[in-house]
Amino acid sequence: MKHSVLSMMLLAASLFTLMSCNKTDYISPDKENEVENLKLIKTFSDNGFKVELFKSSGQLVVGYNKIFLRLTDKSGNYISNASVNWLPMMTMNMNGMIKSHSCPFSGITKTANKQTLFEGYIVFVMASNEPGDSWNLKINFTAGGQTIDINDKVNVVSTISQFQKLYTSVTGNDGMTYMLAFVEPANPRVGINDFVAGLFYKGENGDFPIAGNYKIKVDSRMPGMGNHSAMGNEDMIQGSDGLYHGKVGFSMTGSWVINMILQNSSGEVVKGESITETNPESSLNFKLEF
């Protein structure tokens, strides 16, 4: 079963709006600082309202981005209850031909145990390349019966290098285009790590729904060490959050390739190959160094 993020998001947003439409709490900025471990990406402002975007690294990258939002009203107070939506759009200028597309993203929910923060994720599928190719983020929120639309550019950089690849887009044997984004471990360590990734596909209507009920086999390897493989890997399966959860093992620090095989619900291989003497790398992989 494949869900549409957009439809889920809309449903959740409408429920949320119903529940909270008459109740808006305001928190004075000098009372709360809940962004101590986060870095500001950008501040959007419109008509006295402000939306601040935060991320642990302070930078939007190609792949998975967990983003925190903080809303400020005209009087400068934080808004703790609101219904928030967003829509990232890429506008590409291909030799004068303007094309646009979106990317996989989640709905926005209130961050647990935080007064002033909302959160969601966006999986950017390419980098900004100004002036031709730019990412635009539309944010819309309703608070205290007032609806605000804010729209601005965001800068997305690529972190892909010879030793780092945390996002991959592949065409499966079933003809579908899949996007696989590395979520965890954000801070990999020697030993067994919880391994989380988001799997999406390109829908027919320009949407990017979560791909459900797949299985992703994991084989972490170190090409610099004769393709040594670590113990502790566990296949990834979909969790209640829609993301895929498994385990990945690293036996030392250094440069690792996480080779994966994507299987559909009937166990057929959609993408990726087993590692053998002659095939050192799967066509579905992540790369990281630590």
């Binding site: 010879q162 610099g224 060490m225 030392m252 250094g254």
Partner: peptide, 17 residues
């Protein structure tokens, strides 16, 4: 402990206990 130095200087060192 063991620290290994890949021939490619761009490649990170490898370390294990």
């Amino acid at each position: 402990e063991m620290t290994m130095y890949p021939e490619n200087p761009r490649e990170p060192e490898m370390f294990m206990l």
